[in-house]
Write a protein that binds this DNA or RNA. Structure first.
Lengths: 327, 327
DNA sequence: TTGTACGCGTTATCAG
DNA sequence: CTGATAACGCGTACAA
């Protein structure tokens, strides 16, 4: 490229890097630009990254399974990173990690930092071995799962779940069940399931787990009718997320059961749809926007000074009470 | 690193690249491995890529908006690429392209090839300027939108839509409406909307467009009740995708209208849920799995020989008739 | 304002 | 089997 423009490589670099802190003659700039255009020349990103140490990339590690909340968070991340000079590389981490128990593929991405969102299975494994896997890589976990060694923006789902249970038990519900997808591993473990169990046990009430085959109307309906047949007194359902809660409310209505009056329904996440439903849904709303902002802020701090102390914060979700659990 | 092991950089490279085509003494290998471990040493990917010209990365350009079909396709791509040596970097392309009309961020990813899936707004723009943007970059578009200049695995939604319309009109439906999300730009344009309009016009029937505020139960229900109030004779709805169709069927049932009998409902995509519903849904099923396989095959061909002729194929979707449109 | 020379960290070549 | 040495394509002092 340099010789095509009959100009030194240094000048080419100065022009194409778009630097304003240095002065270049209009003549030289034009010559470079024209040559670049006619040759279809693009600077080699790897070579550039090798010398500058920067790629302008941030890795977002998360599960890409179908969930409105994840879509919403991803969208927020994109918007926020769009205001910076960083670009976003999304990696389906839990899937990969479950598959071969390695971060090999994920770490091929030449990122300057990593934000791991709700990455249940992999966050801890990565944080524990990060010295070996990616020394000094800026890393922030955000959401329901975090690693104590690194920066994180956690969300205290446990307190959220407790507030939800206090609300249900406090309004007189006694036959409360917990619903989660059958294959999620969240039926008996995790902040939501465990808080549910504790609160029920503390009140001397028996627990009941509802395993939905999938996050779909038909499976939720099936699960519900089985549950009601078994326990006709069922008067509240704590759903693991809003998608499930929305389906639950619709299914109940279809079965002629009044959500809120006959059976209370509470979800998690606080997606827009939970509010816009014909029967608005009580939910443990996660501060997604704040979480994303802070995660980016923490990541930036680590990127500017990789030896800086990790920043850690745990955000509180908010119980938003709506019709689906009103008396 | 080399000097820490007291061994040449060449040998370090040979060990850590994990090459089997060359022989290394056990002694040297052990020395390298140990030194690498104690130093937490990882080969620099950028330097490696600079000399080998390979990154092991494939870019997947798509919209990350909430859609079961997209999740399903993404999952399939991950599974297929998991069988190769390639890793997948997902980029939310339409959003980015709409935002600043540039591929700057997307092209920061040092990928060896790009698969663009259902990337409506950006595929053509990229293909047209690819010489300038990313010369000789292997590129395959797959799904409903493709660029003639490059390799593609298209899906002929037009013929699918026509088959759906022929089915509806052939079973005697006359008051057929087309439903799509209000902000999608797909209400009046695109293969689905246009085929609908043509078939209706050919039959001398008036068209009717149903704009759902969002892909949600409440907005679908609102849209439907308005539509039925306006046109009580409405007897069929062609939905732009299965998510919408599923909500439509549920909404109809809730309104006491029998899907299939009173009003026929047809969707697009062929996601699993469309079949598992209590009232299984007629849909224009896309050959997603085949599409992904072929796209990877085509991309591989381009990666092995960038000057090879583009491979192009258009797949036919299948109309799967189920209860939601039975007589 | 521009060019020369060097280094970034790796792999490939070619002697040893 | 191993070690020098030369690329890979950039950015950047430093000198001109």
């Amino acid at each position: 490229m340099a010789k095509a423009a009959n100009i030194s490589g240094a000048t080419v670099s100065r022009v194409l890097s778009g630097r304003t802190d240095i002065s270049i003659s209009e003549e030289a700039r034009a010559k470079v630009l024209e040559a670049a255009k006619s040759l279809g020349y693009q600077p080699n990103r790897m070579a550039r990254a090798l010398v500058t140490g920067r790629t302008g990339l941030v890795g977002v590690w998360m599960s890409l399974h179908y969930s409105r909340y994840r879509s919403q968070v991803l969208d927020r991340m994109r918007a926020l990173l769009g205001q910076t000079e960083l670009a976003m590389a999304v990696t389906d981490i839990d899937e990969e990690y479950s598959w071969d128990h390695s971060f090999d593929r994920a770490l091929r991405m030449p990122v300057e930092g990593i934000i791991a969102f709700d990455a249940e299975k992999s966050v801890e494994a990565f944080a524990k071995n990060s010295d070996r896997l990616a020394p000094r890589m800026p890393f922030v976990s955000m959401g329901a799962y975090w690693a104590h060694e690194k920066s994180y923006v956690g969300i205290d789902l446990r307190s959220g779940a407790e507030a939800a249970m206090d609300h249900l038990l406090g309004t007189g519900r006694r036959h409360v069940a917990f619903m989660a997808p059958a294959n999620s591993g969240l039926l008996l473990r995790g902040a939501r399931a465990e808080s549910y169990q504790e609160r029920m046990r503390d009140s001397g009430l028996p627990t009941r787990v509802l395993a939905a085959e999938g996050v779909r109307m038909d499976s939720v309906m099936q699960t519900l009718s089985d549950a009601i047949a078994t326990d006709p007194k069922l008067d509240a359902i704590l759903c693991m997320n809003d998608d499930l809660a929305i389906y639950t409310v619709f299914a109940l209505q279809k079965m002629g059961i009044r959500p809120g009056l006959d059976i209370a329904v509470v979800g998690f996440d606080g997606i827009d749809e939970a509010e816009q439903c014909p029967c608005p849904i009580t939910t443990v709303s996660q501060p997604a926007s704040q979480m994303c902002s802070l995660a980016i802020e923490f990541l930036n701090a680590q990127m500017e000074d990789p030896s800086a102390e990790p920043q850690q914060i745990v955000l509180q979700p908010t119980l938003v009470i709506r019709s689906s659990s009103m008396a």
